[in-house]
């Protein structure tokens, strides 16, 4: 905050402001190669997010199938899963998975974190997939079955491809939420973007620049992602064009 006031009221003009900015920038990112922490953090965040999204999708699909099943026990298990995950904070889940469930398992830290996030994300994904499958008209299933396709074939060739198109926007949202959610992995000692920014803050006693930088990095990552997903969505909509 003091820094800020100095910049705004210092009166030495723009050149002084730039000099101060450069000095702070050097201290935050160049000195002791601190930018490398952030780069490393970006890698960790991306790694965890991608693996968690992938596993989350699989878990979500399986849970959705359970929730839609005719079997009462499977339906019950699906409901319990989503209830428990949605009813507890993700930090708590992460710490339980990390310090309790995988306490004695020899796996790389980031993989354990990714598993924790996938378990969390899976609950939300399952609800999205369930809604997506239910949104497809029953006539589609009947048409598939009447041709002699099995239930599984009908699901995979007819229902799921249409559901994917419907749930794509919601899935993108979930993926974005997941990326931001990973900012808590510092709790289990992983150096992601957030933790790197926090570390620089502690090491330099400068708060604004490292934290703003952290925010900008997340923003840019997610902006790139949404742009790519937007292109994919457009392609999925190919069959809607009259």
């Amino acid at each position: 905050m003091n820094q800020c006031l100095v910049w705004l009221t210092g009166g030495n003009g723009i050149s002084a402001w730039f000099a101060e900015f450069a000095r702070t920038f050097e201290k935050c990112f160049i000195r002791e190669d601190r930018y490398k922490l952030l780069l490393e953090g970006i890698g960790v965040t991306i790694k965890i997010s991608l693996l968690a999204a992938f596993l989350g999708l699989i878990i979500g699909f399986l849970i959705a199938i359970c929730s839609l099943s005719k079997n009462k026990l499977l339906r019950f298990l699906g409901k319990v899963y989503t209830d428990v995950i949605r009813g507890t904070p993700s930090v708590t889940q992460l710490m339980i998975i990390y310090f309790v469930v995988f306490a004695t398992v020899d796996l790389e830290k980031w993989i354990i974190a990714a598993i924790a996030f996938s378990i969390n994300s899976g609950a939300y994904v399952s609800e999205i997939i369930r809604a997506g499958i239910l949104s497809i008209d029953k006539g589609q299933t009947e048409a598939g079955r009447s041709l002699g396709l099995t239930g599984v074939q009908t699901m995979f060739y007819i229902v799921v491809p249409q559901a994917v198109k419907n749930i794509f926007p919601a899935m993108c949202n979930e993926f974005i939420t997941l990326i931001k959610e990973t900012a808590i992995v510092g709790y289990v000692g992983l150096m992601d973007i957030q933790k790197a920014g926090d570390f620089i803050k502690s090491a330099t006693y400068l708060a604004m620049m490292p934290l703003i930088a952290t925010a900008i990095i997340y923003f840019v990552l997610i902006k790139i992602l949404t742009t790519v997903l937007g292109v994919i969505e457009k392609r999925l909509r190919k069959s809607d064009i009259r």
Binding site: D137, S146, L147, G148, I158, P161
Partner: peptide, 17 residues
Amino acid sequence: RQKMGMVFQHFNLFPHL
């Protein structure tokens, strides 16, 4: 069912294909 074709009131064509 492979021996019996069925045509529905609402067509039920697969819109994604």
